[in-house]
Amino acid sequence: MKHEERVEAYIGLALDDLLESSPSELKTESQLKDAGMEIHQFSPAFEKKMRKICAQSKRHEWFQRHRRSLRRIAASIAILICVSGVTIASVDAIRIPIVNFFLRIGNLSSEFALSKDENLPVSEKFELYYPTYIPKGYVVVDSKEGEDFFSVTYQKDEMCFFFLSFNRDNTGTFLILKTAPWKNLK
C-alpha cells in the first residue's frame, strides 16, 4: 500500500469512528426537514467538478486494475512487429518486392509537369476543355480546330506520341492504334 492510500484509509476509519461515537450531532434529511431547516443544494458548477473528479478517479482505478494486461498487450504488439520485421528482412520472396516497390516508384510512375507559360494551341472557346498539363518531355507538333472540335498531337520522339481530340457533338468514342485506321467504338 502506498502512503497516500494508507492516509485515505486512516481518514476513512476516523470518520467512521466519529459518526459512530456521536450519532446525535448529525441529522438525516428528514430530521432537518422536520426541524424546518432547508437542505443545502450544491451549485451546478460544483456538481460538474465533482463528477469530473469521480470520473478521473474511476479512470485511474481502471488503469491500476488493468495495468498488467495493458503491459502484456503492448509487449505482444512489440514482439509481433519485431517478428514481422525479421521475417520480412529474412525472406527474399517478401523483402525484394517491397524494397523494389520503393526504389523503383519514381522510375515506373508517370511524371507530369505543369506548363503555365505555354501558348495554348486552341482558341478561347476551347480553352476550358484543354488539359492543364502535358506529360514531361512532350511538345505540341500539330493542332487543328473546327467549329465544334479541336485536336492536338503531342510528340516526345519519333516513335512516342499521343493524340488528343475534343468534340462537343460527340456521338461515339474513337481509338487510334499506331497506324491503324480510325474506328468507331459502339
Rank of each mutant, 00 (worst) to 15 (best):
L70W: 02
R65W: 11
A55F: 14
S22Y: 05
I94C: 00
V122A: 02
F42R: 08
Y10A: 14
Q155I: 03
S84T: 06
L70F: 06
D16P: 11
I77A: 03
C54N: 14
S43P: 01
L15Y: 04
A180L: 10
S165N: 15
N170R: 15
H40C: 09
F163M: 12
G36C: 02
E25T: 15
K125S: 11
A89V: 01
V7C: 08
K156T: 04
F112P: 07
V152M: 01
K183Y: 11
C160E: 14
C160S: 13
V99G: 04
L185S: 07
T87D: 00
V139G: 10
T132K: 10
S110Q: 12
I176H: 05
Y154G: 02
A113P: 08
K116C: 08
E20F: 13
G172C: 12
R59E: 11
F150Y: 07
R6V: 07
S143W: 00
S123F: 10
F174N: 07
I98P: 02
F42S: 10
L185P: 05
A75T: 05
G106W: 04
I77M: 02
D17H: 15
R59A: 15
L70I: 11
V91P: 00
A89T: 00
A113I: 14
L114K: 09
P131N: 01
R168H: 01
K156Y: 08
E5G: 08
F174I: 12
A93S: 07
E20M: 08
T153C: 09
K178G: 10
A113W: 06
F150T: 05
C54G: 13
N167C: 15
F166T: 03
E145C: 03
P97H: 01
A113V: 14
E38C: 06
G137V: 03
E111I: 14
H3D: 13
L177K: 14
P23W: 01
R168L: 04
